[in-house]
């Protein structure tokens, strides 16, 4: 799967799509491939305040549990409820319907700490 060029990535495999001050967050195609079939996502409540690097939630595949980290600081303003019944969207469409949370950024400079698509692809 080609890596979309409009995304930024953390070194822990979360991606961000930043639109104004809202960051939509998911996990990379590489990460979902390593995890295998996702069976469960545990995501935060809307309203939760996060610092960059905080544990954001958990993703469980059949074979493993993996922590999800906040790639930027801010407030959780939306959670992808479709994953409750269809966590396989993380596998099927990691950069689209498999998104996990939207974060209203409080530190816009956080974005500069992330990798661009080319750098992420070259590293992983």
């Amino acid at each position: 799967m080609p890596t979309p060029i409009d995304l930024n990535f953390s070194s822990t495999h979360e991606w961000c799509r930043i639109d104004a001050n809202i960051a939509t967050v998911g996990i990379s195609d590489h990460a979902q491939g390593e995890l295998g079939d996702v069976a469960l996502t545990l995501l935060p409540e809307v309203g939760r305040m996060l610092q960059r690097g905080d544990k954001l939630g958990e993703i469980e595949s059949i074979k493993a549990v993996s922590d999800l980290y906040a790639p930027v600081s801010g407030e959780v303003v939306a959670v992808n409820e479709a994953l409750d019944d269809a966590p396989e969207l993380v596998n099927d469409d990691p950069y689209g319907k498999g998104w996990m949370v939207k974060i209203k950024m409080t530190q816009p400079a956080d974005a500069e700490t992330l990798l661009d698509s080319a750098a992420y692809e070259a590293t992983f």
Binding site: G36, D37, I62
Partner: peptide, 8 residues
Amino acid sequence: PVSYAGTV
């Protein structure tokens, strides 16, 4: 082999 096309 742990999987081919995916465990599910």
